[in-house]
Nucleic acid binder design. Sequence first.
DNA 1: CAGTCGATTCACT
DNA 2: GTGAATCGACTGA
Length: 215
Amino acid sequence: MIAAPDRTPLTRDFFDRPVLEVAPDLLGRVLVRSTPDGPIEVRLTEVEAYDGENDPGSHAYRGRTPRNAVMFGPPGHVYVYFTYGMWHCMNLVCGPEGRAGGVLLRAGEIVEGAELARTRRLSARNDKELARGPARLATALGIDRALDGTDACAPGAGPVSLLTGTSPRVDQVSSGPRTGVAGDGGVHPWRFWITDDPTVSPYRAHTPRRRRRST
DNA sequence: CAGTCGATTCACT
DNA sequence: GTGAATCGACTGA
């Protein structure tokens, strides 16, 4: 008989560790998103670590700003940013307060609430695409900047929480360079995913944007 | 204050 | 594989 997955919420202590330790440890865990329309649960299959002010790829590299302030706050909180004029992406703040570490949630498998997720992800051709990619994951879960700063470890039923769940075996975890990260930030193998999982997003190197033709 | 670009996705060839 | 969409944050003058 197989034991049921442990639905005990992850506590702040889980996130109060170096981000490079937390990031791979999040794989396989289930994130619970509670909304008025119902719950959505996603099993995380791909993440990336961003190591605060030391990391050229991190939003915190040039210090604290109004946008990234939450990253400098206590661990276990949600950092949401808006990008490309259309998308939101979601992080979990890690490391001690002041350290500005974050784990970008890049992809996962919807394990509960797929029906609701489909209504938010009309372009998805199948359920594996519902949360394959960081902005897709945020869209499927109904995440936007209103959730920036939310405590994912708050007691009681918050809008976002994480379950202890079951971690994949160490030999089932792969790592490699982060997706779409420019320059020196792209050298570190700080992207982690569950090997061969079909919901993991495709890797793309950073592509400099073409200059817009001036008028 | 104008210029540049983004931890991306989608439609189309 | 290529290019457009779309806007807020950040940079440097």
